[in-house]
């Protein structure tokens, strides 16, 4: 049994269909990257997993349980944590308070506020600052730290690199090995294919709502990825 199983998932907004018949398996402990161009349906996919979009119950299963109709806030308690595109930090709360809210469910696990500060030392320095004034990179670190505070079994990362300078992206990704080593399963969505391939065990490529390529980074050629990404 895989940690996360998605079967024949189709969904969209109104009459706009974003995903077509997606099948996806994410195994316990692996790091799975979903790549694809803008509008390929990557974020929609993550939103069906974290519960911001509900589906038929059986389309999404977590640890074998159908969760398609479980509301987002309950999925956090099950161990699914979503770090949204655009970060969505709580602007009027301090960094420290943001992290505390991240641990709202009081799920037990290895991540504590001190561990998160250890992972992102810059957050420790900013702990009493309002999140409103943070830079994009700082906000992203905070959003990831906040997601970890829920001690997820599955961490969903949505476009971590979006809108950040390459140097900053590099720094954020430096934290990834520690997260993965802690045993957290990671499903990340990226436009930055290079970053994604560097850390992923498996990679899937979405093209216009369809899964067109899946495999281990070592087994896939550059040409295959380019073809899948652009649909040529």
């Amino acid at each position: 049994m895989s940690l996360l199983e998605i079967d024949h998932l189709s969904c969209g907004y109104g009459h706009f269909q974003a995903l077509f018949d997606i099948d996806l398996r994410v195994e316990q402990g692996e790091t799975h990257a979903v790549i694809g161009a803008n509008g390929a349906g990557k974020s929609t996919l993550l939103r069906t997993i974290c519960g911001l979009i509900r589906t038929d119950p059986d389309r999404v299963r977590f640890e074998g349980q159908p969760i398609g109709q479980v509301p987002a806030h309950k999925r956090v308690g099950l161990g699914i944590s979503y770090v949204p595109e655009g970060r969505w930090v709580f602007p009027s709360l301090t960094v420290h308070e943001n992290l505390l809210v991240g641990g709202h469910t009081r799920r037990k696990g290895i991540w504590t506020i001190d561990k998160v500060y250890e992972l992102f030392p810059l957050l420790a320095r900013l702990r009493n600052r309002q999140a409103l004034g943070l830079s994009g990179g700082e906000q992203q670190a905070l959003a990831i730290g906040r997601g970890l505070m829920a001690n997820p079994r599955l961490l969903l990362l949505d476009e971590v690199s979006l809108g950040l300078a390459p140097v900053v992206v590099e720094k954020i990704y430096e934290a990834m090995p520690a997260i993965i080593e802690a045993g957290t399963t990671v499903l990340l969505v990226e436009q930055d294919v290079g970053q994604a391939l560097k850390i992923a065990d498996r990679v899937s490529c979405l093209l216009e709502g369809r899964l067109v390529l899946e495999g281990r980074p070592s087994e896939i050629s550059q040409e295959q990825i380019v073809a899948a990404y652009f649909g040529v």
Partner: peptide, 11 residues
Amino acid sequence: GFGSPPEPGSS
């Protein structure tokens, strides 16, 4: 009829 449904990329 204004647009055709998107074709799945196959290569």
